[in-house]
Protein backbone atom coordinates (compact mmCIF):
# COMPACT_ATOMS: atom_id res chain seq x y z
CA UNK A 1 0.00 0.00 0.00
CA UNK A 2 1.61 3.27 -1.01
CA UNK A 3 0.59 6.75 0.02
CA UNK A 4 0.07 9.26 -2.76
CA UNK A 5 3.49 10.73 -3.31
CA UNK A 6 5.28 7.40 -3.04
CA UNK A 7 3.59 5.62 -5.94
CA UNK A 8 4.05 4.89 -9.63
CA UNK A 9 2.31 8.03 -10.94
CA UNK A 10 4.31 10.37 -8.75
CA UNK A 11 7.45 8.73 -10.17
CA UNK A 12 6.11 9.10 -13.71
CA UNK A 13 5.40 12.79 -13.12
CA UNK A 14 8.90 13.27 -11.70
CA UNK A 15 10.37 11.66 -14.84
CA UNK A 16 8.97 14.23 -17.30
CA UNK A 17 11.86 16.74 -17.27
CA UNK A 18 14.33 13.88 -17.76
CA UNK A 19 12.28 12.44 -20.63
CA UNK A 20 12.34 15.84 -22.35
CA UNK A 21 16.06 16.39 -21.79
CA UNK A 22 16.98 12.91 -23.03
CA UNK A 23 14.81 13.01 -26.18
CA UNK A 24 17.28 14.78 -28.52
CA UNK A 25 20.02 12.34 -27.52
CA UNK A 26 17.77 9.32 -27.95
CA UNK A 27 16.91 10.47 -31.48
CA UNK A 28 20.52 11.43 -32.17
CA UNK A 29 21.70 8.00 -31.08
CA UNK A 30 19.37 6.32 -33.58
CA UNK A 31 20.46 8.59 -36.42
CA UNK A 32 24.18 8.27 -35.66
CA UNK A 33 23.93 4.49 -35.26
CA UNK A 34 22.77 4.29 -38.87
CA UNK A 35 25.52 6.72 -39.89
CA UNK A 36 28.06 4.35 -38.27
CA UNK A 37 26.83 1.24 -40.04
CA UNK A 38 24.30 -0.32 -37.63
CA UNK A 39 20.89 -1.49 -38.87
CA UNK A 40 17.66 -0.02 -37.50
CA UNK A 41 17.05 -3.22 -35.52
CA UNK A 42 20.56 -3.18 -34.06
CA UNK A 43 20.16 0.46 -32.99
CA UNK A 44 16.89 -0.34 -31.21
CA UNK A 45 18.40 -3.48 -29.64
CA UNK A 46 21.32 -1.45 -28.31
CA UNK A 47 19.07 1.19 -26.71
CA UNK A 48 16.83 -1.53 -25.24
CA UNK A 49 19.58 -3.74 -23.78
CA UNK A 50 22.56 -1.46 -23.01
CA UNK A 51 20.40 1.56 -22.05
CA UNK A 52 23.25 3.97 -21.22
CA UNK A 53 23.40 7.03 -23.44
CA UNK A 54 27.05 8.06 -23.30
CA UNK A 55 28.38 4.52 -23.64
CA UNK A 56 26.03 3.83 -26.57
CA UNK A 57 27.48 6.88 -28.33
CA UNK A 58 31.00 5.64 -27.64
CA UNK A 59 30.03 2.19 -28.87
CA UNK A 60 28.70 3.35 -32.24
CA UNK A 61 31.66 5.69 -32.69
CA UNK A 62 33.87 2.58 -32.47
CA UNK A 63 31.53 0.51 -34.68
CA UNK A 64 32.15 3.17 -37.33
CA UNK A 65 35.91 2.89 -36.79
CA UNK A 66 35.88 -0.92 -37.37
CA UNK A 67 37.79 -1.78 -34.19
CA UNK A 68 38.02 -5.21 -32.54
CA UNK A 69 34.75 -6.42 -30.95
CA UNK A 70 36.27 -6.95 -27.49
CA UNK A 71 37.53 -3.36 -27.49
CA UNK A 72 34.03 -2.02 -28.20
CA UNK A 73 32.63 -4.06 -25.31
CA UNK A 74 35.49 -2.98 -23.07
CA UNK A 75 35.04 0.70 -23.98
CA UNK A 76 31.33 0.51 -23.11
CA UNK A 77 32.35 -1.10 -19.81
CA UNK A 78 34.92 1.64 -19.15
CA UNK A 79 32.46 4.46 -19.83
CA UNK A 80 29.82 2.79 -17.63
CA UNK A 81 32.18 1.99 -14.78
CA UNK A 82 30.83 4.92 -12.78
CA UNK A 83 27.62 2.89 -12.32
CA UNK A 84 29.53 0.67 -9.89
CA UNK A 85 29.60 3.62 -7.51
CA UNK A 86 25.93 4.46 -8.18
CA UNK A 87 24.81 0.96 -7.30
CA UNK A 88 26.98 0.86 -4.18
CA UNK A 89 25.53 4.17 -3.02
CA UNK A 90 21.88 3.60 -3.94
CA UNK A 91 21.83 -0.06 -2.84
CA UNK A 92 21.88 1.13 0.76
CA UNK A 93 18.60 3.01 0.14
CA UNK A 94 16.78 0.07 -1.45
CA UNK A 95 15.77 -1.64 1.78
CA UNK A 96 12.10 -1.54 0.74
CA UNK A 97 12.75 -3.72 -2.31
CA UNK A 98 13.12 -7.52 -2.16
CA UNK A 99 16.01 -9.10 -4.07
CA UNK A 100 14.47 -9.61 -7.51
CA UNK A 101 12.98 -6.12 -7.54
CA UNK A 102 16.37 -4.70 -6.63
CA UNK A 103 17.93 -6.72 -9.48
CA UNK A 104 15.36 -5.28 -11.91
CA UNK A 105 15.75 -1.75 -10.54
CA UNK A 106 19.52 -1.80 -11.12
CA UNK A 107 18.95 -2.38 -14.85
CA UNK A 108 17.35 1.08 -15.08
CA UNK A 109 20.06 2.90 -13.08
CA UNK A 110 20.94 5.66 -15.58
CA UNK A 111 22.54 8.89 -14.36
CA UNK A 112 19.32 10.96 -13.93
CA UNK A 113 17.54 8.00 -12.29
CA UNK A 114 20.38 7.77 -9.77
CA UNK A 115 20.34 11.52 -9.16
CA UNK A 116 16.57 11.64 -8.66
CA UNK A 117 16.50 8.56 -6.41
CA UNK A 118 19.36 9.91 -4.25
CA UNK A 119 17.65 13.30 -4.03
CA UNK A 120 14.40 11.64 -2.96
CA UNK A 121 16.13 9.58 -0.28
CA UNK A 122 17.95 12.72 0.87
CA UNK A 123 14.58 14.41 1.49
CA UNK A 124 13.55 11.47 3.69
CA UNK A 125 10.94 10.11 1.23
CA UNK A 126 10.76 6.28 0.99
CA UNK A 127 12.44 4.81 -2.08
CA UNK A 128 9.55 2.53 -3.08
CA UNK A 129 9.70 0.14 -6.02
CA UNK A 130 6.50 1.75 -7.40
CA UNK A 131 7.98 5.25 -7.42
CA UNK A 132 11.30 4.00 -8.81
CA UNK A 133 9.63 2.17 -11.72
CA UNK A 134 7.22 5.04 -12.29
CA UNK A 135 10.27 7.15 -12.97
CA UNK A 136 12.24 4.49 -14.84
CA UNK A 137 9.67 3.17 -17.32
CA UNK A 138 8.76 6.43 -19.16
CA UNK A 139 12.45 7.28 -19.56
CA UNK A 140 13.23 3.77 -20.80
CA UNK A 141 10.26 3.27 -23.17
CA UNK A 142 10.78 6.65 -24.84
CA UNK A 143 14.54 6.10 -25.08
CA UNK A 144 13.94 2.89 -27.06
CA UNK A 145 11.26 4.54 -29.23
CA UNK A 146 13.57 7.47 -29.95
CA UNK A 147 16.31 5.12 -31.16
CA UNK A 148 13.82 3.63 -33.62
CA UNK A 149 12.50 6.99 -34.86
CA UNK A 150 16.01 8.45 -35.06
CA UNK A 151 17.25 5.43 -37.00
CA UNK A 152 14.37 5.65 -39.50
CA UNK A 153 15.09 9.32 -40.18
CA UNK A 154 18.84 8.90 -39.96
CA UNK A 155 18.84 6.56 -42.94
CA UNK A 156 17.14 9.30 -44.99
CA UNK A 157 19.96 11.81 -44.45
CA UNK A 158 22.42 11.56 -47.34
CA UNK A 159 25.04 14.18 -46.33
CA UNK A 160 25.32 14.28 -42.53
CA UNK A 161 28.34 16.65 -42.76
CA UNK A 162 26.18 19.54 -44.01
CA UNK A 163 24.04 19.30 -40.87
CA UNK A 164 27.07 18.79 -38.65
CA UNK A 165 25.72 15.40 -37.53
CA UNK A 166 29.09 13.67 -37.80
CA UNK A 167 30.54 16.14 -35.28
CA UNK A 168 27.77 16.18 -32.67
CA UNK A 169 29.29 13.36 -30.63
CA UNK A 170 32.46 15.35 -30.04
CA UNK A 171 30.42 18.32 -28.77
CA UNK A 172 28.29 16.02 -26.61
CA UNK A 173 31.33 14.29 -25.09
CA UNK A 174 32.95 17.65 -24.39
CA UNK A 175 29.78 18.59 -22.49
CA UNK A 176 29.95 15.36 -20.48
CA UNK A 177 33.62 15.95 -19.65
CA UNK A 178 32.79 19.46 -18.41
CA UNK A 179 29.97 17.97 -16.32
CA UNK A 180 32.55 16.16 -14.19
CA UNK A 181 34.61 19.29 -13.51
CA UNK A 182 33.73 19.52 -9.81
CA UNK A 183 35.53 16.21 -9.20
CA UNK A 184 38.89 16.03 -7.49
CA UNK A 185 41.88 16.51 -9.81
CA UNK A 186 39.59 16.96 -12.83
CA UNK A 187 41.91 19.35 -14.67
CA UNK A 188 45.11 17.27 -14.39
CA UNK A 189 43.15 14.17 -15.40
CA UNK A 190 41.67 15.87 -18.46
CA UNK A 191 45.04 17.36 -19.47
CA UNK A 192 46.75 13.96 -19.10
CA UNK A 193 44.03 12.17 -21.07
CA UNK A 194 44.12 14.84 -23.81
CA UNK A 195 47.89 14.60 -24.20
CA UNK A 196 47.85 10.82 -23.90
CA UNK A 197 45.11 10.36 -26.50
CA UNK A 198 46.65 12.81 -28.99
CA UNK A 199 50.10 11.22 -28.68
CA UNK A 200 48.64 7.70 -28.93
CA UNK A 201 46.58 8.77 -31.95
CA UNK A 202 49.76 10.00 -33.65
CA UNK A 203 52.21 7.25 -32.71
CA UNK A 204 50.12 4.13 -32.02
CA UNK A 205 46.97 4.83 -33.99
CA UNK A 206 43.21 4.63 -33.54
CA UNK A 207 41.49 3.05 -31.58
CA UNK A 208 44.29 2.72 -29.01
CA UNK A 209 44.09 6.43 -28.23
CA UNK A 210 40.95 5.63 -26.19
CA UNK A 211 42.45 3.08 -23.81
CA UNK A 212 45.95 4.60 -23.64
CA UNK A 213 44.65 8.16 -23.19
CA UNK A 214 42.15 7.01 -20.58
CA UNK A 215 44.87 5.12 -18.75
CA UNK A 216 47.06 8.25 -18.68
CA UNK A 217 44.26 10.18 -16.94
CA UNK A 218 43.57 7.43 -14.39
CA UNK A 219 47.28 7.01 -13.58
CA UNK A 220 47.59 10.74 -12.95
CA UNK A 221 44.55 10.61 -10.64
CA UNK A 222 46.11 7.77 -8.63
CA UNK A 223 49.53 9.46 -8.39
CA UNK A 224 48.27 12.89 -7.31
CA UNK A 225 47.94 13.63 -3.61
CA UNK A 226 44.50 12.64 -2.36
CA UNK A 227 42.06 15.48 -2.13
CA UNK A 228 41.33 16.47 1.46
CA UNK A 229 37.61 17.14 1.50
CA UNK A 230 36.81 19.91 3.98
CA UNK A 231 33.58 19.53 5.91
CA UNK A 232 30.84 22.03 4.96
CA UNK A 233 31.56 24.27 7.94
CA UNK A 234 35.21 24.54 6.96
CA UNK A 235 34.28 25.36 3.36
CA UNK A 236 31.96 28.09 4.59
CA UNK A 237 34.75 29.64 6.64
CA UNK A 238 37.08 29.67 3.66
CA UNK A 239 34.55 31.32 1.34
CA UNK A 240 33.38 34.00 3.79
Amino acid sequence: MSQSGDGFFKGARDSLPIVAAAAPFGLLFGALAIDNGLSVGEAVLMSATVYAGASQMVGIELFGAEVAPWLIVFSVFAVNFRHVLYSAALGRRMGLMPGWRKALAFFFLVDPQFAAAEARAERGRPLTFAWYMGMALPIYVLWVLEAWIGALFGSLIANPEIYGLDFLLSIYFLGLVLGFRSRANWLPVVVASSLGSVLAYMFVGSPWHVSLGGLAGVVVAVMLPLDHKPDPGEALKVSS
Binding site: A54, L174, L176, V177, V189, S193, S197, G213, G217
Partner: peptide
Protein backbone atom coordinates in the same frame (compact mmCIF):
# COMPACT_ATOMS: atom_id res chain seq x y z
CA UNK B 1 38.73 9.78 -12.74
CA UNK B 2 37.49 7.11 -15.17
CA UNK B 3 34.58 8.91 -16.89
CA UNK B 4 36.38 12.21 -17.53
CA UNK B 5 39.56 10.37 -18.56
CA UNK B 6 37.82 8.11 -21.09
CA UNK B 7 35.49 10.75 -22.54
CA UNK B 8 38.34 13.23 -22.98
CA UNK B 9 40.11 10.79 -25.32
CA UNK B 10 37.12 10.94 -27.65
CA UNK B 11 37.24 14.74 -27.89
Amino acid sequence: AVPAAVLTTLV
